[in-house]
C-alpha cells in the first residue's frame, strides 16, 4: 500500500459526511472479504464450538422457554394448558403494554445517543492527548468493574431526593427533583444511570478503533491543512464507521435487553410504572410474579421487535459503510 491509501480530503462544503455518502463495495455489503479462502468444511469446523454451545445453552432452552408463550403453566410444571395466542393477544389489548413499549423506545434512543455521544467525546479526547492516556483509560474504565447491584444503589443514593448529594445540588438550583413521585424525573434518572454504566463499553471500543487508524492518514491530512476537529469528522470517523455501526447495534441491544438490573436498583419500574420498560416488565412478570406464559409472550414480541430493528439497522446503515480503509 502506498500513498494512494490516504483518502483525499473532501472539499470544504459538503452536505454529508463521507461514511453516509459513499456507496460501499458490494462485497462488504454482504459482510465478506472479496479476498478470502476456499473451502466448505473448514469454516464449519471453525464455527462448531460457538454453534454447539449456542445450541445446547441457548437455542434448546430458548425454544423450550418461548413455547411457554402459548401455554398457561404453573411454575413447578405440573399443570399445562395450551392457550394458543391468548397470552399474546392479552398483551396487545393491554394499555400498560403499549405504554411500556413507548417507554422502551424513548429509553433506548436516549441511552444510545447519550452513551455514544459522550463515549465518542471521551475517546476522541483520549486519543488526542499525548500524556496520561493510559491513566485516563484506566480510570474511565473503573465504573465498569463495580458490581451492577452496587453501582445502581450508589447512583440511586446520589440522586435520592431525601439524602442524595446530587439531588441536594439540584434542589439548591431550584429544580424540584423527585424521582419518587415524578415519572419524568425517574425516567431521566434511569437514562442517566444506564448511560453511565454503558459509557465504558462504547468508550473502550472507540478507543481501540481510534488506535487502529493509520497515523500516516492523519499526518497526510494534517499536511493538507485540515484542522483537528475537521479531520476527525471527515477522515477518522468514516474510517472507524464499522465500529460505530457495531456500537449503534450493541447500544440498542443494551437498552432493550440488559437494563433490568439498573432499573431494579434505581426505580423498580416506578413510580406508577413510569420506568417500566419492556425488559423490566419481562423480568417482573416472569421472575418475580412467576407468570411464565405472559413473560414468554412478552419475550416473543420483544424479540420480534428487536430483530426487526436490527435488520433495519443493517439494511439502512451498514450498506453505507465502507469497510475498505484503502479506498
Amino acid at each position: 500500500m502506498s500513498e494512494t491509501a490516504i483518502p483525499a480530503l473532501p472539499p470544504r462544503r459538503l452536505s454529508w459526511p463521507a461514511f453516509l455518502r459513499r456507496k460501499a463495495r458490494p462485497e462488504s455489503l454482504h459482510g465478506i472479504k472479496s479476498s478470502g479462502f476456499a473451502g466448505q468444511v473448514l469454516p464449519l469446523v471453525l464455527l462448531a464450538p460457538q454453534l454447539v454451545i449456542l445450541l445446547m445453552f441457548f437455542f434448546i432452552p430458548a425454544i423450550r422457554g418461548l413455547a411457554q408463550a402459548f401455554l398457561l403453566q404453573d411454575p413447578f410444571g405440573q399443570e399445562v394448558h395450551f392457550v394458543g395466542l391468548e397470552n399474546i393477544t392479552a398483551l396487545l389489548r393491554s394499555a400498560e403494554y403499549w405504554e411500556s413499549l413507548r417507554l422502551s423506545v424513548n429509553f433506548t434512543l436516549a441511552t444510545t445517543a447519550l452513551t455514544f455521544g459522550v463515549g465518542l467525546l471521551l475517546a476522541f479526547a483520549t486519543d488526542r492527548v499525548a500524556r496520561g492516556r493510559t491513566a485516563y483509560r484506566a480510570v474511565l474504565l473503573l465504573p465498569y468493574a463495580i458490581a451492577p447491584a452496587i453501582a445502581g444503589f450508589v447512583w440511586a443514593f446520589l440522586f435520592n431526593p431525601i439524602v442524595g448529594p446530587a439531588a441536594a445540588l439540584l434542589h439548591a438550583l431550584g429544580i424540584a427533583w423527585d424521582p419518587n413521585r415524578s415519572g419524568d424525573d425517574a425516567l431521566l434518572l434511569v437514562i442517566l444511570t444506564a448511560s453511565w454504566k454503558h459509557l465504558c463499553y462504547d468508550y473502550i471500543f472507540l478507543v481501540a478503533a481510534l488506535g487502529s487508524v493509520p497515523r500516516s492518514v492523519i499526518e497526510a491530512a494534517a499536511v493538507d491543512g485540515a484542522r483537528p476537529l475537521r479531520r476527525f469528522f471527515w477522515i477518522v470517523l468514516p474510517m472507524i464507521a464499522p465500529t460505530v455501526f457495531f456500537l449503534l447495534v450493541m447500544n440498542t441491544v443494551y437498552g432493550l435487553f440488559e437494563t433490568f438490573a439498573i432499573i431494579d436498583a434505581t426505580t423498580r419500574g416506578g413510580p406508577a410504572a413510569a420506568t417500566n420498560i419492556l425488559v423490566y416488565k419481562v423480568y417482573v412478570d416472569g421472575f418475580v410474579n412467576l407468570d411464565l406464559g405472559s413473560s414468554a409472550a412478552q419475550s416473543v414480541l420483544l424479540m420480534i421487535f428487536a430483530i426487526s430493528l436490527t435488520v433495519i439497522q443493517f439494511r439502512l446503515i451498514e450498506r453505507r459503510i465502507s469497510y475498505d480503509v484503502s479506498q
Binding site: R64, G65, F257
Partner: peptide, 19 residues
Amino acid sequence: IFLSLMLPVEVRIVPTFEA
C-alpha cells in the same frame, strides 16, 4: 449467532438450568 442477544434471560432460566 446474532439471535442469541435478543432474548431476555428470565425466559430461559429454568430450561437452561435443565440443560
